Simulated scan of single mutants.
Amino acid sequence: MMEIDSRIPVTIVTGYLGAGKTTFLNHILNQTEEKVALIVNEFGDIGIDAQLIEQTTEEIIEINSGCICCNVRKDIVDTLSILAISREEKMIEFDRIIIETTGLADPAPVVQTFLMDKEMVEDYYIDAVCTLVDARHISNHLDQQGEAINQIAFADVILVNKVDLITQDQLTDLRNRLESINPTASQKICENSRIPLGDVLDIRSFDLQEKIKVNPDFLNNHHHHHDDEISSLSLREERPLDMKKLNLWLSFLVQVQGERLYRYKGVLNIDGVDHRFVFQGVHMLFAGEEAALWGDDDRVSELVFIGRNLDKKSLTEQFEQCIMS
């Protein structure tokens, strides 16, 4: 019998300025039957986005005077703690948290909050990181190598919005570029930020163990050549891995290259272990655990790294050193 996860799902909505995040939030709030607690982060002292959210019965909490990924990170932890306590004591009711970051936010510290804080891990889980992109203008933002490219690198779902403003050839080129940056994210095409809710809610896209149950081959992508500083590397190996060597390598990796590693995840075949070993990391923080039994499935290790200026040759060679001799 499957154990029911009583934790609160969290959807993180990010995207560069003007991508359509507020319109997307209004779409969700108008369509969902869930009760949502919405946390809106704005960079200035005056909150505008919360005023643009259409009137609902939802809880709306503003965090202003800074970016949620920087100096107000403590504020979001405090806010989430209060919400969890209030929900437990029946003071308020909600089924889901949605966090909208400012268009200038790096999603990494927000994601890390739910991986490193014990209280957050006990009360919440990340359902998905949804990144909206403005199909007409995103290429210029990507060329600048700024926040927009980081937001795409961290996405579990990329919503390619405003596709009615570009040609089919431009859309094809854009989708190829987005895939080269983040091959494991699913891409959804939309106009006016409208998307079936089933594509973005309750998909447990950030939960690698759950994701491989649905699609065991989702890591099986082998793109290696990219033009952007942010790129991905996929590694696949059928021979079993040495757990001791693997631990030493990953520990070394996060210490030396952690700041350049935006997201990394994998399903590994460990020598002498009958269970899959599932791990994922964000910058210098990573965690792993035993998952489902291999059973009759092919025992294959698959890893994906997404980061800035990846030394793909070195990473590949270091990974090969972890293969059982």
Rank of each mutant, 00 (worst) to 15 (best):
D164V: 14
L165C: 11
L165H: 12
L165D: 13
L165M: 13
I166T: 11
I166K: 13
T167Y: 05
Q168F: 12
D169R: 11
D169L: 05
D169E: 14
D169G: 03
D169P: 03
Q170R: 10
Q170F: 07
Q170N: 10
L171R: 14
L171C: 10
T172F: 09
T172Q: 12
D173A: 13
L174T: 01
L174I: 02
L174V: 02
R175S: 07
N176G: 12
N176P: 01
R177E: 06
L178N: 00
E179V: 15
E179S: 15
E179F: 15
E179D: 15
S180F: 01
S180C: 08
I181A: 01
N182S: 00
P183C: 01
T184N: 07
T184K: 00
T184H: 04
A185R: 01
A185P: 04
A185E: 03
A185G: 03
S186R: 11
Q187V: 00
Q187A: 00
K188A: 09
I189L: 09
C190L: 07
C190A: 11
C190D: 07
E191L: 01
E191V: 09
E191M: 05
E191F: 04
N192H: 14
S193T: 00
R194V: 13
R194I: 12
R194E: 14
I195Q: 02
I195E: 01
P196E: 02
P196M: 00
P196I: 07
L197K: 08
G198R: 03
G198F: 02
D199H: 06
D199Q: 10
V200W: 05
L201A: 06
L201E: 04
L201S: 04
L201V: 08
D202M: 13
I203E: 02
I203V: 12
I203Y: 03
I203A: 03
R204P: 00
R204G: 02
R204Y: 03
R204T: 04
S205W: 00
S205L: 08
D207H: 08
L208A: 06
L208Y: 02
L208W: 05
L208Q: 04
Q209R: 15
Q209Y: 14
Q209L: 14
E210F: 15
E210K: 13
E210D: 13
E210I: 10
K211F: 05
K211C: 08
K211Y: 07
K211G: 07
K211T: 14
I212Q: 14
I212R: 13
I212N: 10
K213L: 10
K213R: 10
K213Y: 03
V214L: 10
N215H: 09
N215G: 04
N215I: 04
N215E: 10
N215R: 07
N215P: 03
P216R: 09
P216W: 12
P216D: 06
D217P: 04
F218Y: 15
F218S: 05
F218H: 11
N220G: 08
N220V: 02
N220H: 11
